[in-house]
Amino acid sequence: MTQRKADDTKLDTDVQSHIGRQLRAGYVDILNQPVPDRFLELLAELDAKQVDPPADDTDARQNGAR
């Protein structure tokens, strides 16, 4: 509360914690939801198929501009 810098690069701690609470609230909301069935099915499918790693090169591409 004492460090009130006039320049706007330093936010008041109250503002910071307000933003933090809001941010966290939205996040935790999703975090607490049960895992949708589609993902359970997906994992079961991957597990069953034992999808072999086909040297997927999309990873290499995804950071490069095209």
Binding site: N32, Q33, L43
Partner: peptide, 25 residues
């Protein structure tokens, strides 16, 4: 832990992150 279980554990936080990034469930 089998990878399937390992991944399962992290699905809730992946979803939370993905919603935070994209804004759409």
């Amino acid at each position: 832990r089998p990878p399937r279980d390992e991944l399962l554990i992290h699905i809730p936080s992946l979803r939370a992150f993905a919603v935070s990034l994209s804004g759409q469930i």
